[in-house]
Simulated scan of single mutants.
Amino acid sequence: MEFASCDVGAWREALLAYDVGLSLLRKPDLLPLDAFYRTELPLLLLRRDPRPFLTKPELHRLMQWKLTRGKWRPRLLNFISSLEEHLVESASRKAFTALPDLSQAVSELTVLKGVGPATASAVLAAYAPDVAPFMSDEAMIASMGNVKDYTLKQYLAFAEKLQMKAKELSVEGNCFTPVDVERALWSSAVRAKLLHSPSDDKSEAEAGVKRSTKRKRKI
């Protein structure tokens, strides 16, 4: 998926293939973790309006999701485990209250040990998908080039690009959020990587693309 592409159909197809991408990674824990992150957590946060917050167990599970979908770094989980519950709730409440000011929101979360801009972006994306995209490796590379500078400054530039792309794609009845754009980029990158992998993975990736295309036609 080329980030510059304006083909709404191609972006929609990549987004619809997100679940296929999860399955292709062959990580049994990823599917329930992703269901928690995409479905359960946003509902929990919305129920806590007007002053939503994240609990320590929820942050721990979010970190498990982030590391399982990306690169596994167990030390980060240890940092989260060492945090005090009231600090997690206080920092997250301040962060959500700061939105749509992404700079302040990220800064409120990164006071927590083990939480950098990328993890902070995952927290914010769960509550405000129309503002805060998750700072994944795949989306960063696709939108910013081969750069892995996980700083607040880089995240703000990244978020702005995905916000603009979401607006660009939201035409003729289509509705994309920055979070949708990130997931489409991630899905496309995962499938592209597997298509260049050994034959078994390649065949499975090709089959996944066909299944997602069929689902698209039924919508």
Score class of each variant (00 low, 15 high):
Phe36Asn: 13
Glu182Pro: 01
Ala189Gly: 00
Lys218Gly: 00
Glu172Asp: 15
Glu138Trp: 11
Gln154Ala: 15
Gln104Ala: 12
Glu40Arg: 15
Arg93Phe: 02
Ala166Cys: 11
Leu16Met: 13
Ala4Trp: 05
Ser90Pro: 00
Glu204Cys: 08
Arg61Phe: 03
Arg217Val: 13
Leu33Thr: 14
Asp34His: 15
Ala126Asp: 08
Trp11Met: 04
Leu152Cys: 08
Asp200Thr: 10
Tyr150Gly: 11
Ser121Ile: 09
Gly21Pro: 10
Phe176Asn: 08
Lys113Gln: 07
Thr177Ser: 15
Val181Tyr: 02
Val131Trp: 12
Lys216Thr: 00
Asn78Asp: 15
Asp19Pro: 01
Leu195Asn: 07
Ala166Phe: 13
Val131Gln: 14
Val181Thr: 02
Pro42Ala: 09
Ser197His: 14
Thr119Ile: 14
Glu138Arg: 03
Lys193Gly: 02
Lys27Val: 06
Glu58Asp: 10
Thr39Gln: 14
Thr55Asp: 11
Arg12Cys: 07
Gly116His: 09
Leu102Gln: 02
Glu182Leu: 05
Glu204Thr: 09
Ser5Thr: 10
Phe158Arg: 03
Ser90Ile: 03
Lys153Tyr: 02
Val209Trp: 06
Asn146Asp: 14
Ser92Met: 04
Glu206Ile: 05
Arg75Met: 12
Trp186Ala: 04
Ser143Arg: 02
Val88Asn: 05
Asp130Trp: 10
Asp180Met: 02
Gly21Tyr: 08
Ser5Ile: 08
Ala157Cys: 01
Asn146Lys: 13
Gly70Ile: 06
Leu45His: 10
Leu67Asp: 04
Leu162Asn: 12
Lys165Ala: 07
Leu109Ser: 03
Pro28Ser: 03
Leu152Met: 07
Thr177Arg: 05
Asn174Tyr: 11
Ala128Pro: 04
Glu138Thr: 08
Ala207Tyr: 01
Trp65Pro: 00
Ala122Trp: 06
Val115Cys: 04
Leu152Arg: 14
Pro198Lys: 05
Arg12Ile: 02
Ala35Lys: 14
Arg183Gln: 15
Gln64Asn: 07
Leu30Ile: 04
Val8Phe: 03
Asn78Leu: 13
Tyr155Arg: 01
Gly21Asn: 08
Val123Arg: 07
Glu172Ile: 06
Tyr127Gly: 08
Val147Lys: 12
